[in-house]
Design a protein around this nucleic acid. Structure first.
Length: 501
RNA sequence: GGGCCGGUAGCUCAGUCGGUAGAGCAUUUGACUUUUAAUCAAAGGGUCGCGGGUUCGAGUCCCGCCCGGCUCACCA
């Protein structure tokens, strides 16, 4: 029998002992009077004397994190919502059954206590326990109390254990929730309507990516998990929902990295009667306020850099290429970066526009640490954006970068159905030449445009990446509760439990 | 997919030149009524990721595979 099985058997047997004392191993409702974080916040500043009179009575619950037993007394740390509070148990102050229960407690058990606040000789805020009850039994072993759980594979696979053992993790996901709530609130304040559009789509579009395929049995059709909600959201703009947004998952059948998870969360919003310049201003306001709501400040530390979301720089893609050109070679001029010949000499793509983007990604992207808006993209890589009035080879589009990552993408939406048809056909051509990520023709979308779409600005913001920036997380897996991993195979716990019955 | 790194007790980690598998925490037993990485005394606990190979002998060397991390490519 392995150690884990022995321990399981031992603790399973303890269930009977707990029940013999008149408690339930898997208890019922517990009406606590306050939470551990609230107590810590409210009473940490109070002195021992202030706590002594009048006494502060509390009824709390939580998971046992540490136990220090000293014969007829003991100290335990309970954890709740990522924070820890010490409780003090003394034989004289409990019933016989409660003290017997205390002696059976394992690290990881969930209990409820009543008692009063005091400070120990060493000054730690603690609860002097007067009654004790049992709420839930742990059967497996907790991770090490000092180092916590560090094995990243276990942290991602068993996120519940990560959340129990590493308090910072709870904080990260609470911040993620604040980010989403902040964006929702800000958009609502600006009269945007939240909508939900199909995730299972017969035609996929709105981005350059390979999709996941699934199948509907009754209709007997293949469907694609959406790579973007864009084309549906713009149909709604045609329909007169002038300001819409959606926060939900996109699915792209591509590689996994510290910046990519196959399913990821995007905010997309569309605003009629504005353009990409209007969205630049809006983006700045949204990001700045979100940083404040999530972290308390528009200025955040990320991986050794200081990012200031209250002051977003704006550069054209050409300016960025010139600006970030490597020090050790001849810096190009504006004439160079406009010259198709020069572009082809410095990249390997078919068209000058694609070359420019390739060069930009090579020389500038990873250096865009400060939040920066890059604008004026070539038409070839932007099949849904409106042409620039002065230069039809370019479109009115920008992307937002920070910490070397793209976190947003926006443009003035193409609303001319004739031009949209030509763009789709251009994409079909790329597709025939082997580009699996090129768009398909979406004729219903073209038909929608034929009814007239108002001039519109649209934008997507990657929520996972934004969360990385605002929680100082180096990997996207640290801001996704259950990132995609290969299945782990047989776990064996069911068999172990069966053996105990 | 390529390159590099890792997988040893439940957790965090050692393991020398190829020669009996180690520590701390956790667990069990005992002592201890303000401790705090509690302390003290004792005990139990291993599919060294999996499968081959070399060898008298493999955690250690070689080959293949599995899982993970970083990185490059691709992408947001």
């Amino acid at each position: 029998m392995s150690l884990e099985q022995e321990l399981l058997a031992q603790r399973h047997a303890r269930i009977r002992e707990i029940e013999a004392l008149g408690f339930r191993a898997y208890g019922q409702r517990f009406d606590f009077s306050t939470t551990i974080p609230t107590i810590l916040k409210e009473y940490t500043p109070k002195s021992a004397e202030e706590l002594a009179s009048p006494r502060v009575e509390v009824k709390i619950c939580g998971r046992i994190h540490t136990v220090r037993r000293m014969g007829k007394a003991g100290f335990l740390h309970l954890s709740q919502l990522g924070e820890r509070l010490q409780i003090y148990i003394k034989k004289d102050d409990l019933s016989e059954k409660e003290f017997a229960l205390y002696q059976l407690l394992d690290i990881g058990d969930i209990i409820g206590v009543t008692g009063y606040l005091f400070r120990t000789r060493t000054g730690e805020l603690s609860v002097h326990v007067q009654t004790l009850t049992f709420l839930s039994k742990i059967l497996l072993n907790m991770p090490e109390k000092w180092h916590g759980l560090e094995d990243v594979e276990i942290r991602y696979r068993q996120r519940y254990l990560d959340l129990i053992a590493n308090p910072d993790v709870q904080e990260t996901f609470v911040t993620r929730a604040k980010i989403i709530a902040s964006l929702r609130r800000q958009l609502e304040e600006r009269n945007f309507v939240e909508v939900e559009t199909p995730m299972m789509q017969p035609l996929y579009g709105g981005a350059a990516a390979r999709p996941f395929v699934t199948h509907h049995n009754t209709l007997d059709i293949d469907l694609f998990l959406r790579i973007a909600p864009e084309l549906y959201l713009k149909r709604l703009i045609v329909g007169g929902l002038d300001r819409v947004y959606e926060i939900n998952r996109n699915f792209r059948n591509e590689g996994i990295s510290t910046h990519h998870n196959p399913e990821f969360t995007m905010l997309e919003f569309y605003q009629a009667y504005t353009d990409y310049k209007g969205l630049m201003d809006l983006s700045g306001e949204l990001l700045c306020q979100t940083a404040i709501d999530a972290t308390g400040s528009p200025v955040v530390e990320y991986d050794g850099a200081t990012l200031d979301f209250s002051n977003i720089r704006r550069l054209t893609i050409r300016e960025a290429v010139i600006d970030f050109w490597p020090e050790n070679s001849t810096r190009p001029t504006m004439e160079n970066v406009k010259d198709p010949e020069w572009l082809k000499q410095n990249a390997h793509k078919a068209s000058p526009g694609e070359c420019l983007v390739e060069i930009f990604e090579r020389v500038a992207e990873s250096k865009l640490i400060q939040p920066t808006i890059i604008y004026e993209y070539p038409v070839e890589t932007s099949p849904l954006s409106k042409n620039n009035l002065d230069d039809p080879a370019f479109v009115d589009r920008f992307e937002i970068f920070a910490a070397g990552m793209e976190i947003g993408n926006a443009y003035t939406e193409l609303n001319d159905p004739q031009e949209q048809r030509r763009r789709f056909e251009m994409q079909l051509g790329m597709r025939e030449r082997g580009d699996e990520e090129a768009h398909q023709m979406d004729e219903d979308y073209v038909r929608a445009l034929c009814y007239g779409m108002p001039p519109t600005g649209g934008e997507g913001i990657g929520i996972d990446r934004l969360t990385m920036l605002l929680t100082n997380s180096k990997s996207i897996r640290d801001v996704i509760l259950f990132p995609l991993l290969r299945p782990e195979g047989n776990i064996g716990v069911a068999a172990d439990l069966r053996a105990l019955e």
